[in-house]
């Protein structure tokens, strides 16, 4: 639980938090959807789901999840197998290729505070970079 005023504190200290920055860089995360999707796959390294079901599980809009998926697939961290005529796609997180940072990321995000810290950092980086190619947290988060 984040107490009133805590979020500001977290946002102030995050840019100097080299561990958080390293994790974000290592994972190639650009927004909160990237983070939550990666965390979902780290908990479920091998899934067979439709795109709609995947979006429902992580709680973001379909388009946003699709962009995050593309980025994960580009890094080679995620493998996708399509099956013609079926709605389900198999996604396999290549855990071995992730290295130690994935475990560190999981540990940081094991608490609400840790996860929120990273999300705040991602949001701050987005605004600093003026990145308008994707909406990240400013997008229509379903929750």
């Amino acid at each position: 639980m984040i107490f009133p005023g805590r979020r500001d504190v977290i946002q102030k200290i995050l840019p100097t938090d080299s561990v958080a920055l390293q994790l974000v860089e290592a994972a190639g995360l650009r927004d909160a959807c990237d983070l939550d999707l990666l965390l979902f796959f780290s908990r479920h390294p091998r899934v067979v789901l439709s795109s709609e079901q995947l979006a429902a599980y992580v709680g973001y809009e379909l388009a946003q999840v699709a962009r995050a998926l593309d980025r994960l697939l580009e890094t080679g961290l995620l493998r996708r197998t399509l099956n013609q005529g079926a709605s389900g796609r198999m996604y396999v997180l290549e855990v071995d290729s992730a290295g130690e940072w994935l475990e560190s990321l999981r540990r940081v995000c094991a608490t609400p505070d840790g996860r929120n810290s990273l999300k705040a950092l991602l949001k701050q980086r987005q605004s600093q970079n003026g990145d308008s190619s994707h909406r990240g947290l400013s997008g229509a988060r379903s929750s």
């Binding site: 091998r46 899934v47 067979v48 789901l49 197998t81 099956n83 079926a86 198999m90």
Partner: peptide, 25 residues
């Protein structure tokens, strides 16, 4: 060992298909 997370709906479709992703795994 493989641990696969899915939904009942997808599982039902998968098992009925001759070229099922799940059964391929």
């Amino acid at each position: 060992l493989k641990i696969v997370f899915t939904t009942r709906q997808v599982f039902q479709q998968e098992v009925q298909q001759a070229d099922s992703l799940l059964l391929d795994e």
